[in-house]
């Protein structure tokens, strides 16, 4: 152990790292490794048949498409919410600020049944949309609504601290050099906030791709139409097709890892911006 680390007077290195590594391997690393092992009990042909099956492809399209739309809605409105919370004063601001985290605290099943009830044809919101020919619950649009809800806090919470740290002097300098407000926003503020905006977008997207609880209630779960990838995994599991479920899980995981890598790169870029 000792050769692994730089010398320090503080005790407890072996104990703390030993326990942390043991626990992390037991809970996270070994089970995930078992998943990959299970998926590759399939032959290559079987694996590709499972993950490229038309029903699986339809589920990727819905999961990724709805997550992308949800994250885009959150990008625009999350930015406005963050801006309003940092720059303006209004009655009840602190309560609004606290409420933004509701999707983190509210269990997804509760969100799922609440949104379904609201957007069902007779629901509070649904009854106004049905005459217009807009179907939300039990349709792909419902998936978008659920994924927008669960990804809502990410953009707000990544942009907010960066906006708070921005020095007003830069805006003052721009204004005193004759830039109008829109110009200052577009040329000074927006580029400074871009890394944080993209990080929030990616986090919201990553969370939405794997989401299950809130979506299963509102989507209606029709194969090829409103079936998300996590639901397809559950279906395979219920048919005792463990290797098939594992294969789809590997696809979902690889996609999440790529996103995680992207988010880390974005954060690195963001930190470098802030430091420089």
């Amino acid at each position: 152990m000792r050769s692994l680390r730089k010398p320090s007077v503080i005790p407890g290195f072996g104990l703390s790292l030993g326990f942390a590594a043991f626990y992390a391997s037991l809970i996270v690393f070994i089970p995930l490794a078992a998943l990959f092992a299970k998926a590759f009990t399939l032959t290559w042909a079987q694996f590709w048949d499972t993950v490229l099956h038309p029903q699986a492809l339809a589920s990727y399209r819905l999961s990724l498409g709805a997550a992308l739309i949800g994250a885009s809605i959150n990008l625009v409105f999350g930015f406005i919410v963050a801006w309003v919370l940092v720059r303006y004063n209004f009655f009840g601001k602190k309560i609004v600020d606290a409420l933004v985290d509701l999707p983190f605290a509210l269990p997804t099943a509760v969100a799922g049944i609440a949104l379904t009830t609201l957007y069902a044809p007779q629901g509070w919101i649904g009854q106004w949309l049905t005459p217009l020919g807009i179907k939300v619950a039990y349709a792909p649009l419902g998936v978008v609504v659920a994924l927008t809800f669960i990804g809502l806090p990410f953009v707000v919470r990544t942009v907010q601290p960066v906006l708070e740290e921005l020095e007003k002097e830069i805006e003052e300098a721009a204004a005193s050099l004759g830039a109008n407000r829109w110009h200052t926003f577009r040329r000074i503020l927006f580029p400074a906030l871009l890394p944080a905006l993209l990080t929030g977008f990616a986090l919201s997207f990553a969370r939405a791709v794997g989401e299950y609880g809130s979506v299963v209630f509102i989507s209606g779960n029709m194969p090829f139409k409103t079936e998300i990838t996590p639901l397809l995994i559950v279906t395979k599991l219920e048919q005792y097709n463990y290797a098939g479920a594992a294969a789809l899980a590997v696809v979902l995981l690889v996609f999440s890892f790529i996103l995680l890598l992207l988010i880390n790169l974005l954060q690195h870029w963001s930190n470098k911006r802030a430091g420089g």
Partner: peptide, 26 residues
Amino acid sequence: LIDLPFAVSPVVAGLIYVLLFGAQGW
């Protein structure tokens, strides 16, 4: 490794334990 569970779909989180400890598991 600590961040990893945030990136894993909840369904996959359940699945990995079924594959380890389930009747058909390792």
